[in-house]
Nucleic acid binder design. Structure first.
Lengths: 196, 196
DNA sequence: CTAGTTTTTTAGTACTCACTAAAAAACAAC
DNA sequence: GTTGTTTTTTAGTGAGTACTAAAAAACTAG
């Protein structure tokens, strides 16, 4: 077994660089030359050799995003009550979408809602991931309904969709320049919908 | 004064076609060839002659959007109470973003949140228009505060931001496939935040 | 050293991007 | 008819798109 020529760039740092660009410019607004610069890779073939094509790189970036800047989501689901989970989730979104070290907003929204036919696979991947997040919240709220945390007559599905709408609206608000404090205020108002 | 060679396309119909494409594919995902096809124009120079460049055409489309598919917004502000205005606005958004004759979502959100440096002018135009909508709602709610429609201690600015967040979240939800009924349910929940 | 493996480099592919100069065509006024 | 005006058509511009074949370079194992 052999070693081969060593990489001149760090894979994780390169993915972080790619994440930054995709986050700020969206999938379709990001070119291979932008990625090369941000990833610290000198030539296109090195990028394709290491990460596959643009779409595969995008998926790897989304995975890394979920474990890094969006890690607060997984933590939110560890909260003991559904109400605390939602509150942590939304206040976490207010923080993450306005973090000074990252582009504004959320990569799963900013990445691309509308696109040319050639980018539909990437757009659909984003749609899927947003739907997966909403489904996870729906399950958590269903469980809260069964455990008695939610009063009788509550609609866990509708609540999940409502809080997801807030969550996604926050990403748009952040893109428009809303401050962190303003978004936390939005979350506080949104939480008053909680039953009882 | 002379007539000159007559147009072979209808300007309003062409703008409607351009609106459809920009709405479905976003500003950056839309190419001149897409526009030509959708606008019923045979050659690029005819488009440039009639509407200026891509960015100027986009602005004309946004103006037409405001008077057409987003006309419900102006109507909402004619409601006698602020509460009715917000309700009409949000339920109107639920209808408009899921209308079967149009692409999903709202052109001022779908048009582009993140983009390449070359498209920043278009993105900023969208940001400005969203901000203008939020400012109008803020003014309406301030007025409601002064007229006594809102109870003492209410925060019109925070309410305006909250309802705008819902409004923009609805556009993302619609892009993800939410149904009209589901979005109306979201709006009903969102309206329970209304003070008193 | 040689052989094997992986990455980088060089130099390209074919295609699309937004946009335009110049000429031809189709009208109105006279 | 001629002149003036506007639009369409033809034929392009240079720059950028994602991606790749092939060779050179830099490592490890033996």
């Amino acid at each position: 077994m052999a070693g081969g020529r060593p990489r001149t760039f760090d894979s994780d740092a390169a993915l972080d660089g790619a994440m930054e660009v995709f986050w700020r410019q969206g999938y379709e607004g990001t070119g291979i030359s932008d990625l090369l610069k941000a990833m610290g890779i000198s030539n296109a073939p090195s990028l394709y050799n290491a990460f596959g094509n643009k779409e595969q790189l995008f998926r790897k970036v989304l995975d890394r995003y979920a474990e890094g800047p969006a890690g607060y989501i997984r933590e939110a689901f560890l909260e003991p009550t559904a109400r605390a989970a939602v509150s942590t989730l939304l206040h976490g979104a207010a923080d993450a979408t306005t973090h000074p070290d990252h582009p504004r907003g959320c990569i799963t929204v900013q990445g691309g809602l509308a696109c040319s036919p050639g980018a539909e696979a990437a757009r659909d991947e984003l749609t899927m991931r947003r739907a997966a997040g909403e489904a996870a919240l729906r399950e958590r709220l269903r469980q809260a309904g069964q455990s008695g945390e939610l009063p009788a007559g509550s609609d866990p599905e509708a609540l999940a969709r409502y809080f997801t709408t807030i969550y996604q609206g926050i990403a748009v608000q952040a893109a428009g320049g809303a401050t962190r404090e303003q978004l936390h205020q939005v979350v506080d108002l949104a939480m008053t919908v909680w039953p009882q």
